[in-house]
Amino acid sequence: MSEQIEEQNPQRRWLRLVPLAIALVIGGFLFVGLSLKPKEIPSVLIGKAVPQFDLPAIPGRPKGLKSADLSGEVSLVNVFASWCVSCRAEHPLFMNLQARNIVPVHGLNYKDESTAALNWLRRYGDPYDRIGADLKGRVGIDWGVYGVPETFLVNAEGRIVCKHIGPVRQEDLDEKLLPAVEALRQGGTAQC
C-alpha cells in the first residue's frame, strides 16, 4: 500500500545509507584519534613571558632561580623532583647536554624535600645551572605544571617557546628541542 509506493520512489533510498555514512565518519575520526595525545594539555603560556617568580636555591646548593635569570640567552627549564620516577629516565640526557655545554638547563625542583633533592642530585648527577626550590608548588602552578617531569624552552627575551610534557627522550631532543634552540640562536623563530 503506502509502503509499496514509497519503495518505488528511488529518491528515498539514499536515506538508508545515512547510518552507514555516520558510522564511517565516526570511524574516520576514531582512526585519527589513535594518533592524538588527549592526555597532553597544550600550554597556554607559549609565546608569553615566563611568569614572575623568585625562588630560593635548595639549601646547601648555590644559585636560586628567578624570572630575570631566564632572559639573556636561550635556555631549558626542567621541572623535576626526587620522588618522580620518570625523571630518572630523562636525567642522563640533561647530564649529557651539560657535559657538552650545548644549552644551559635550569631546574625547577617541584614540591621536594631539600635533603631528598640534594641526595638525588648527588646520586644521579647535577646538570643544572640554577635550581629554584618550589616547596609549595605555587610557582609550578604559575608555569602551568601538572605532571612532573616537564621541560620548557625559553628564548633570549625570556619568553616560553615550547613545553615538553613527560620525560624527554633522545629523539625529542634531536628532532624538537635542539633544532629549536639552534633556530632561536640564529635569531629566528621556532615552534614545537
Binding site: E7, R16, P19, L20, A23, G27, L34
Partner: peptide, 28 residues
C-alpha cells in the same frame, strides 16, 4: 587500537551496508 578499530569498522559498516541494501524489503 588499530586492530580493534579495524574490526569495529568491518562489523558496523558491514552490517549497516547490509541494512542499506535489505531494509527496504522489510516494511509494512
Amino acid at each position: 587500537g588499530v586492530f580493534i578499530l579495524a574490526f569495529l569498522i568491518v562489523v558496523i559498516a558491514g552490517s549497516l551496508t547490509l541494512y542499506a541494501v535489505r531494509a527496504p524489503a522489510m516494511k509494512g
